[in-house]
């Protein structure tokens, strides 16, 4: 799972014996809750034994969010022990000042705060777990949704391959795709997922809503009516943009 995001080559770098490339790596984080537990390593080894291939030589970031207010432990020695169990500690994240000095002494890199900081970390607003974005199968509707009918995908996305009539209602926890005219009402992100979107081939909806934020037909820019449109949520308002 590696994805190059940027290439920083410039004219002079051609003569260098290396290239500097930005990259994103998926790295396991080991969140330390009680590193002074005398059985810490024994329990960790037991855990690793469940999936030895997965953990073998895996780069590890030590997440210190939960212990950042405590006295630091000897990270040099701790890293050494991890290496003996074929884990490769490469850095720390969410570290306080005392821990940072200890990390430097142990030769560990300092990563920007990552993962979901919990309440103790407090460095960023706590994000609620993304609602219903588990990989559930999408609900697919092939028949027209007529006035007075309701189709609700309580989990995952909703894909409609036929017109959604005036007075019809469609709703989904995830995205809504309508590959036909959308003339009724569409509610995406009904479990509160603000990243849900609505896509339609022909926007004539009475109302569209994402995570409770809505616009009615009258408020829709007339230039977008009848067009292919993508609707997303930006804070407390909806953003409607034409699709190519």
């Amino acid at each position: 799972m590696q994805r190059e995001v940027a290439s920083t080559t410039d004219q002079t770098s051609r003569s260098l014996p290396f290239q500097v490339r930005g990259s994103l790596q998926a790295v396991l984080a080991l969140r330390l809750l009680d590193p002074e537990d005398p059985e810490f390593l024994a329990k960790l080894v037991e855990k690793i034994a469940y999936a030895p291939d997965f953990y073998r030589d895996a780069p590890i970031v030590l997440d210190l969010a939960a212990v950042t207010d405590r006295e630091p432990i000897d990270l040099l020695q701790f890293a050494e022990e991890l290496r003996r169990h074929r884990l490769v500690p490469v850095g720390v994240q969410n570290a306080g000042a005392a821990w940072l000095a200890e990390a430097e002494r142990a030769g560990l890199a300092v990563f920007a705060a990552g993962g979901r900081g919990d309440a103790a970390a407090g460095t960023r607003a706590v994000q609620p777990p993304r609602a219903s974005r588990r990989p559930t199968a999408a609900t697919v509707v092939r028949e027209p949704v007529r006035g007075g009918q309701q189709v609700v995908a309580g989990e995952g996305d909703l894909v409609v391959l036929a017109p959604v009539g005036h007075g019809a209602e469609i709703a989904a926890a995830g995205h809504i795709h309508v590959y036909a005219p959308l003339r009724g009402r569409a509610y995406a992100g009904i479990e509160g997922d603000e990243s849900a979107m609505i896509f339609c081939d022909q926007l004539d909806a009475e109302l569209v809503s994402i995570a409770g934020v809505y616009v009615v037909n009258e408020e829709i820019d007339t230039a977008l009516l009848g067009r292919r449109v993508r609707i997303s949520c930006m804070g407390d308002r909806l953003h409607l943009a034409p699709l190519p």
């Binding site: 027209p144 949704v145 007529r146 006035g147 007075g148 009918q149 005036h166 007075g167």
Partner: peptide, 9 residues
């Protein structure tokens, strides 16, 4: 509109 409704029923 009413025809659309009855089609749904």
């Amino acid at each position: 509109r009413d025809s659309d409704r009855i089609l749904g029923i």
